[in-house]
Simulated assay, not measured.
Amino acid sequence: MRMRSVLIFDGDCGFCTTSVGVVQRLVRPRCEAVAWQHADLASLGVTAERARYEALWVTSNGRVYGGAQAVAKILLSAGGLWSVAGAILALPPVRWVAHGVYRLVADHRGRLPGGTAVCAVPGEKSHRA
């Protein structure tokens, strides 16, 4: 069992890498952040297909959360006011809206600041944790 949660992100995507850096500096989540391209995905219980599709939060006991739920977990782990924001983000109907916003951003991340063609998300298949 791992001691810390793990944030898995797309290390080839400039937008994703920049976003994780900002989150680490400002929010300071209690986790290890690792690009999926350098992670032992099998030991984390996730597939490369899912890791390409969305950011993932893997708890120390192996539970996997993706997309907006992963963002909520990041905020919750930081404590303080960030955890209040994370708790709100995890509640329906906010969670449903957050999922839509997350998909909108993720599906168009190649067009956002720092994004490139490499950032394009393959397929439109939905993955829910």
Rank of each mutant, 00 (worst) to 15 (best):
H99W: 13
A70N: 11
Y65T: 07
D40T: 05
T17N: 13
R111L: 15
S19D: 00
T47E: 14
M1E: 13
A98M: 04
L56Q: 11
V121D: 08
H38L: 09
A39H: 09
Q69D: 15
V71M: 14
S19W: 12
C13A: 06
L91G: 01
V121C: 10
G100I: 02
G114S: 09
S43T: 14
T47A: 01
A39N: 11
V101P: 08
A98E: 02
A51G: 06
R52H: 14
V27P: 08
P92H: 10
G67D: 00
L81W: 14
P93Y: 04
A106K: 00
Y53S: 15
I88T: 14
A90M: 10
G123F: 01
E49C: 01
R28D: 00
P29E: 01
L104C: 10
V27T: 03
G123P: 12
C119F: 05
C31Y: 06
S19L: 10
R50Q: 15
R25V: 05
S77M: 10
R63M: 08
V94A: 09
C119M: 07
W57I: 03
R25A: 12
G80L: 06
L91A: 13
H99Q: 13
Q37S: 04
A78S: 09
C119S: 15
C31A: 08
G66R: 12
G80N: 12
W57N: 02
C31L: 08
V97M: 09
Q37H: 08
G67A: 09
T17V: 03
T116H: 09
Q37G: 03
R63I: 04
R109P: 11
M3Y: 05
V71I: 13
R30D: 01
M1W: 12
G62I: 05
K73D: 09
F15G: 03
A87L: 11
H108L: 06
K73G: 00
Y102I: 04
H127G: 00
V84S: 02
V97P: 06
Q24P: 05
G14T: 05
S83W: 02
D40R: 10
C31R: 06
L112T: 07
V23R: 08
V97L: 15
A72F: 01
M1Y: 12
G21K: 12
A33F: 01
A117S: 14
A70R: 14
A48C: 09
G45D: 04
G115R: 01
R2A: 07
R52Q: 15
G62H: 11
V94G: 04
V84T: 05
V105I: 15
W96K: 14
V64I: 08
L89R: 00
R95T: 00
A42S: 13
G110W: 09
A87Q: 10
A106G: 11
L76Y: 02
S60H: 13
R52M: 14
L104G: 10
R103I: 12
S60Y: 03
M3T: 14
